[in-house]
Nucleic acid binder design. Sequence first.
DNA 1: CCGTAAATGCAATTGTGTTGCATTATGTAT
DNA 2: ATACATAATGCAACACAATTGCATTTACGG
Lengths: 145, 145
Amino acid sequence: MAQTKNTYQFEDLLDKHQLKKTAARLRVLSMMYAKNTATSQPDLESVMHDIDRVTLYRVLNVFEEKGIIHKVFDLNGTANYAVCQSGCHEHHHHDEHLHFNCTACKGVFCLNELSLPAINLPAGFQPSGFTVYASGLCPKCSKMQ
Amino acid sequence: MAQTKNTYQFEDLLDKHQLKKTAARLRVLSMMYAKNTATSQPDLESVMHDIDRVTLYRVLNVFEEKGIIHKVFDLNGTANYAVCQSGCHEHHHHDEHLHFNCTACKGVFCLNELSLPAINLPAGFQPSGFTVYASGLCPKCSKMQ
DNA sequence: CCGTAAATGCAATTGTGTTGCATTATGTAT
DNA sequence: ATACATAATGCAACACAATTGCATTTACGG
Ligand SMILES: [Mn+2]
Ligand SMILES: [Mn+2]
Ligand SMILES: [Zn+2]
Ligand SMILES: [Zn+2]
């Protein structure tokens, strides 16, 4: 679920990855860590009107490179980003968990706690990674019908 | 793999779905049935220079609505479309098979023959569908290294 | 062959994402 | 505290997929 972190911890996080502590980066971090669903650039833009859209794209890109967040596409093919749990490093993500896309609230949930079953492919195909999506109703939306 | 059908069969297919037999639709059908990988609007556009891009989008959309093709996003989040095998009807697709996206040739393969393992979700999540992607090298590209 | 509804072409618009470059802010050395 | 080098940002422009409105053309049943 949503991880609680204060400004000092976000500054430490940026320090740890040798990133300068800028207002845009701190605000993106606090927004992303405050929610339990993935965030898109348009999501950020709709809240942070004073930060240029290009800056938001660049913040997301550098966070992904550093292994702070990972990219996941929603049902419409638009990029969303979620905070990485652990085991993610620069240019090397370990995000082979299931992603749940709620058809009602459109939220994208990372289900890190689930273990994915092994999948074997037909002869000739050499897989290097798997991505599993589920769509349907999230807990909150299924309660409200 | 690639299904072989002639023009009469494509006309029958359009008839069956109460779609008018137009040149654009017949050409899109013959191109999509001739290959064993999914096709994007830009793919079609690069071949059918005389057909407007908007028409190609509309042909793809109506084929998807009718259950003739299904949409699958590639690694870059762009929409590709593949011929449905069976069991797909208007507004009701059964395309819960694995999609393999080759990182070399960028081809998107529908692996209909594979059966996907069951996946159960945490309490509260009500799934209505699953999508599984694998990325890596397809048979042809893995042979060429 | 005609008439009508559907399909198409074209222009314009939206949305997401990228690039180049001038300006500003950050962190460090003085 | 100040100056400097470098990184980050803002802005304009661009690229590309996808959508919408509307006029024109086509398909097809009568
Ligand atoms: Mn995730
Ligand atoms: Mn498929
Ligand atoms: Zn929901
Ligand atoms: Zn390949």
